[in-house]
């Protein structure tokens, strides 16, 4: 086995290169335990056992704390120089496949929307269903044949269009931040990141406003049949992802302010930027098929 001293000289050939393997860590197993608390609490709450809120909240807080500690270790290892080109490549593959898994998660919900619009709702207007629900007018948007409460939908070319502009702009500002980091203009980097975070926050604020409007004025609710289901689940999961992305951007902002990352090695930044672009692209699909068409 080669000692550490010779590893650098052969690093480019691959042979004798060292790959960083972290020491034993308590955080993964603790995280699994915290998640068990979260789901136990949720199960109790669903059974109308109200003290389930306690394990739910505690588990949630612990998960957040563990995430901070675990990623703190990662940031420390990164700044300590443990990760070189080889580890960097692993992170890139890992993040890319993670985003692919997220794409497939959204695909399930988009699939449900397409299925409802192309198959289940037209079927409910078909000859067989006329026997059960004679008066049903199977036209999208619909809450289904049984839920008669009328609702209005949110017009695409209002707040959703503004939100589209906001997210597209935030894609530009995060790229600006990336270039600033690569050119080592730290001040520009912080300004561009702060702008991106602000745009993310604006998006979320408008989304919350839109939800309030939907519930208060349009009678559009999560239980408004299949339209409400697909609308709120798709935009809701997207909103959750924007929230996570914004938190990620805030963390990256803090790390940049603390002097982390170098012009040629900053995958932590890039991972969040990739994620941000991913939620951006999902939104474009949402805008077209959920709001517009």
């Amino acid at each position: 086995m080669a000692d550490g001293g010779s590893s650098e000289t052969h690093a480019h050939s691959g042979v004798h290169a060292h790959y960083y393997v972290p020491s034993p860590s308590r955080w993964p197993a603790y995280c699994a335990g915290a998640l068990l608390l979260v789901v136990t609490g949720a199960v109790l709450l669903f059974s109308r056992i109200l003290w389930g809120a306690l394990p739910f909240a505690v588990g949630f807080a612990l998960t957040a704390y563990i995430a901070v500690r675990w990623w703190g270790d990662v940031a420390r290892e990164s700044e300590g120089g443990s990760y070189k080109g080889w580890e960097d490549m692993s992170f890139r593959w890992g993040m890319a496949w993670f985003i692919f898994s997220e794409v497939m998660f959204f695909a399930a919900f988009f699939g449900a929307l397409f299925y409802a619009r192309a198959l289940s709702v037209p079927d409910l207007g078909g000859a067989h269903s006329k026997v059960v629900w004679p008066g049903y007018d199977a036209v999208w948007p619909t809450a289904g044949p049984h839920f008669s409460s009328a609702f209005e939908t949110i017009p695409a070319f209002g707040i959703p269009l503004v939100n589209t502009a906001i997210l597209l702009t935030s894609g530009v500002t995060v790229t600006w931040a990336h270039w600033a980091l690569k050119l080592n203009r730290r001040r520009d980097l912080l300004v561009a990141l702060a702008l991106t975070i602000a745009l993310g926050a604006c998006f979320l604020a408008l989304q919350i406003h839109e939800y309030q409007d939907a519930y208060a004025n349009l009678n559009l609710r999560l239980d408004s049949g299949i339209y409400g289901s697909t609308f709120f689940m798709l935009t809701g999961f997207h909103g959750m992802h924007v929230t996570v992305g914004t938190i990620g951007l805030i963390v990256i902002f803090g790390r940049c302010a603390a002097g982390h990352f170098s012009p040629d090695r900053h995958f932590g930044f890039e991972a969040v930027a990739w994620y941000w672009h991913f939620v951006d692209v999902v939104w474009l699909f949402l805008f077209v098929v959920v709001y517009w068409l």
């Binding site: 669903f46 044949p145 049949g225 709120f232």
Partner: peptide, 17 residues
């Protein structure tokens, strides 16, 4: 969500299937 939050993904009465 169909079980606990009133969505209708798999409920024909709400337009699902």
């Amino acid at each position: 969500t169909d079980r606990h939050f009133g969505t209708s993904f798999f409920n024909a009465a709400g337009g699902g299937d």
